[in-house]
């Protein structure tokens, strides 16, 4: 019996990895590798995936993975790419696989440098919106009002989420995209496309985290889809400065539907939710005026 699957059947993520039940970041890696294929090498700074990859000599992905210090992912990848080219290997795709802490905060300087030099690498940030690996501390990627271990008792995070995509856009790089594991076909397509582009490419993955977002492990895919359907997370591509929404949502669901499913937003009042709806509506006005 032949089966038709909507995403490639070949698997480069091995079972037995060390992720929590229902981890969004493992789904993200699974789809990313389906899009990228075997001729890939991953560079990982400190993040959940440092652990999920497994203790050496074991490895849970079917491609080589290089661990590097927290702040240096983009610099390490730049060097790795230069080394491969020096050895005559132009084909292997160098991919940084970093969390939001290693991208929004600690790795930002190296990231900006590599983007500025337009290094021929793909930088992927799987954004679970806090330092989840060290026990849910606030990062630059944490949304406003979200509970974390370091924002508790203050009504959640006081500052809004850093608009990293705009920072990257200001570097005039050839490709920026957002994806989330609730839409695997879109993910595989964008990773395949990114692989074919030369220069610095950036993909941000919204990655639900059951222990950090305080939701049931079975809700990972649902929440990932709800983030898009409520407009809290927009799927788009920016190719050479041209902005294009990947999924137009003319009838967006209420943002509350997405927030109320997560324990990290449990303390929100109705007024807070109205405010957050306004933030999302304002963001969509900008998206729609651009596309």
């Amino acid at each position: 019996m032949t089966i038709k699957t909507s995403i490639p059947e070949s698997e480069l993520l091995s079972a037995g990895h060390l992720a929590c039940q229902g981890c969004g970041a493992t789904l993200a890696m699974r789809y990313a590798l389906k899009g990228l294929g075997k001729e890939t090498v991953l560079v990982t700074p400190a993040c959940c995936w440092t652990i999920l990859a497994g203790p050496a000599p074991r490895l849970s992905v079917g491609v080589p993975l290089l661990h590097c210090p927290f702040a240096t992912a983009a610099a390490t990848a730049s060097g790795l790419k230069a080394g491969l080219v020096a050895k005559g290997d132009e084909k292997t795709q160098v991919v940084v696989w970093a969390g939001d802490g290693g991208t929004f905060d600690i790795g930002l300087q190296a990231l900006s440098g590599a983007a500025d030099r337009n290094e021929d690498i793909l930088y992927v940030c799987y954004d679970n919106e806090a330092y989840m690996n060290t026990g849910i501390q606030r990062s630059g990627g944490t949304p406003q009002k979200a509970w974390t271990m370091t924002t508790q008792g203050k009504g959640g995070s006081e500052r809004p989420k850093k608009d990293l995509d705009s920072i990257l856009e200001a570097h005039h790089i050839p490709y920026i995209a957002t994806v989330t594991p609730g839409y695997p076909e879109d993910m595989v397509r964008k990773f395949k496309k990114a692989r074919g582009i030369k220069g610095f490419r950036f993909i941000r993955v919204l990655s639900p985290c059951p222990p950090g977002w305080k939701h049931d492990s079975s809700d990972t895919v649902d929440l990932s889809k709800l983030a898009v359907q409520t407009g809290s997370f927009a799927l788009y591509e920016i190719e050479d400065g041209a902005f294009r929404l990947s999924m137009k949502t003319p009838k967006r669901k209420a943002v509350g539907e997405y927030l109320k499913r997560q324990g990290r937003f449990r303390h929100l009042t109705e007024k807070d939710i109205v405010e957050m709806q306004e933030v999302v509506d304002a963001a969509w006005k900008r998206y729609e005026s651009r596309s």
């Binding site: 079972a15 037995g16 990895h17 060390l18 050496a56 074991r58 992905v61 079917g62 080589p64």
Partner: peptide
């Protein structure tokens, strides 16, 4: 064990079913 041993051994040795 999945035949994807790149750097030595696969994490497939780790039977997470016991979780």
């Amino acid at each position: 064990t999945a035949p994807i041993l790149i750097s030595g051994r696969s994490m497939a040795e780790n039977k997470t079913g016991i979780w």
